[in-house]
Design a protein around this nucleic acid. Structure first.
Lengths: 140, 140
DNA sequence: TGTAAATATTTCGAATTCGAAATATAATTA
DNA sequence: TAATTATATTTCGAATTCGAAATATTTACA
């Protein structure tokens, strides 16, 4: 049997899921990186740039660009931290929060609609396997 | 429980796996898209551009660029098809094939080293779940 | 305290990626 | 056979992404 089948189906599943998400949030003029930042802030109130980077998959060199766009669009604000002058604190604007109040539940439902092809046990098992792979591919 | 956990761990697993693969093949001056094309041709001898597109995850608008780079690097050749003048046939050069003879086994082993944290049953179950998700996210 | 190492963030330049529209040829059908 | 539709591929312009190096500030420690 093909030894690479697992990675093939993983890449394909990721790609089609990612595209579904991308198309969904593109309706609101956002890309995946931007949405990731908004989502992190939606749950955490305030986060430093580093705090966001630790939560999402965007590398720091791209993050400045993503954040700048979100600031320009008026969805987040960025203030230098008093404690640590290297650091900048991000939070949603009122507009950003209102938008997320609308988008986030739709986004969640959209994903659930896709994932619900799996029954509960399958989904749990999938999570476990993926966590293992995630860890395994880091130590390399 | 967090309803989005599955997508989170899927995205993370993909990302770290993809990075492991990317770093690996970057040693040979290739990126993931390029490697995907070479891999398709390595197994199939000859393929049209469309044939390659159907096998990999790169959209056609990007494919021209990827193929052009591979031609310039001397790893593949591209000839207009006699049968169908719209179509172009791709195949590995001798150099391309020799390189893949070296890279491909290493690439495969690299991935197996990561995936072998899973036992056989886990891996099969993972494949099944991912295939379901792949299909499920297409019809949207 | 002064200097070195660590951390947070940005800048830079270049490569890659994308969707939409354009081009060229082939297949279909009226 | 002419006109229409379908298919294969490329072009275009713009946005995004990346790693590496630079900057600024803080922390460690000699």
């Amino acid at each position: 049997m093909n030894e690479l089948k697992t990675i093939t189906v993983l890449f394909r599943a990721y790609n089609s899921l990612e595209k579904a998400v991308r198309d969904d949030i593109a309706k609101y003029g956002l890309n995946t990186s931007e949405f990731g930042v908004l989502e992190a802030l939606y749950h955490k109130e305030k986060l430093s740039v580093k705090g966001v980077i630790d939560k999402v998959l965007t590398p720091n060199s791209s993050m400045s660009y993503v954040i700048e766009n979100l600031v320009n669009k008026g969805y987040i604000i960025k203030n230098q931290s008093e404690k640590d002058k290297r650091s900048f604190v991000l939070e949603l604007t009122q507009m950003g929060r209102k938008m997320m109040d609308v988008i986030f539940p739709l986004h969640k439902q959209n994903i659930r609609d896709i994932l619900n092809v799996l029954d509960k046990e399958e989904e749990i098992a999938l999570q476990k396997a993926l966590v293992k792979i995630g860890k395994s591919s880091l130590r390399k």
